[in-house]
Write a protein that binds this DNA or RNA. Structure first.
Lengths: 196, 196
DNA sequence: TAGTTTTCTTATCATACATCAATGTCAGCT
DNA sequence: AGCTGACATTGATGTATGATAAGAAAACTA
């Protein structure tokens, strides 16, 4: 069970030998999971970060009214963590589920520690990832605060054309914070405009 | 010009001498600014992180329609950074402005480097701050996706009772992503419910 | 103190999006 | 081939929030 994406993710951004990453990888648990499999349930604990080697995950929450809201999609080469659980010893408020048959590498703190020891630049790189993540979340908040459903959808199309093709519209709607019916209408509108 | 908050912010969470933090502080620029003063304009560059020793800042953006949206408030003991500018060499998409007369400490990379050298636990602490920040942003996204204006307002009241008392409603509305008029209505609704 | 500006409220009307219900489409299953 | 269940579309209707306007209250400023 090879994990070329995982290897490339670390070697291409860090000054580290492929064999070293490979060794660390071999100490990590790997999961081959079927579509719909739930890696982490809302309310549970997990100290793992999930690296998506293949497939597609989603991170989502159910609110009091029983409505699902997708916080993020995670296709190949993405990392997903439940921070409440992994870093703050609190039950997760999100569930993590596979939307396709997937291959996932489970990263834990010892992996981070070893890489930190092994690669001088890792801490800085990790920091950069976090800052970048924050930027993305801020962008999303900006959109939710000020953009219409149509604008948010167009932004999604541009940002995640790949994900768009791989998930049902229902999920995109849930990510955008609108109903599937509204998304259908928005798409119709856009198609109309284009054909004029 | 003393900065007790700044000193406490670092000494109370890290294993470091007060005198050491004090020395580092003395190498930092400090700004005493008036209400409405703009520390950073949308489109400009800044490598600084702002620590609010006293007063209150806001981070906000103007969208294409000329509407303001507040990303965050920063009262005493908060850190504000424009990440686009400080970490990714891109023009800032947010402005940072004082909402009260304030005292701000300017932190730059050399401060971080020195503290990292001086205090073994600083890197981990800094990481923790970032993870925590991410959690807050995720919470906010969750609210924007699924909660009504009233629910978002009640959440704000609970989370930031202090800020609530210090800023005009217009600003709270902008933070919540609604118009001041709507917020006024929401408040009226809530008052009604309570008096029953 | 009065005057000016900002903020808050209230009212009316407009609209984007939600809700509910019906129907259409298509892939997977037996 | 026919059924089944997930997904997408469409229409009718409802509702929360936006837009605009105007007056009241509060906060500055001279």
């Amino acid at each position: 069970m090879e994990c070329p994406n995982f290897i490339r993710f670390f070697t291409s951004n860090l000054d580290v030998q492929e064999s070293d990453v490979s060794d660390l990888l071999n100490q990590c648990e790997r999961l081959t999971i079927k579509k719909n499999y739930v890696l982490l349930n809302q309310g549970e604990f997990s100290k793992h970060t999930f690296f998506v080697e293949k497939g597609l995950l989603r991170q989502f929450a159910l609110n009091e009214n029983g409505k699902e809201h997708i916080l993020s999609f995670a296709p190949e080469n993405w990392l997903v963590t439940d921070r409440d659980s992994a870093y703050f010893n609190q039950p997760s408020i999100y569930s993590i589920q596979a939307l396709e048959d997937s291959l996932v590498v489970l990263i834990d703190q010892s992996f981070i520690d070893k890489l930190t020891q092994l690669v001088p630049g890792f801490t800085a790189y990790n920091n950069r990832l976090l800052h970048n993540h924050i930027r993305h979340l801020q962008d999303r908040i900006g959109l939710l605060l000020s953009a219409t459903a149509e604008e948010r959808y167009l932004n999604f199309v541009q940002m995640y054309p790949d994900v768009l093709m791989r998930v049902p519209q229902t999920m995109v709607a849930s990510y955008l914070g609108i109903t599937p019916e509204s998304l259908s209408r928005v798409r119709k509108e856009i198609a109309h405009k284009k054909s004029e």
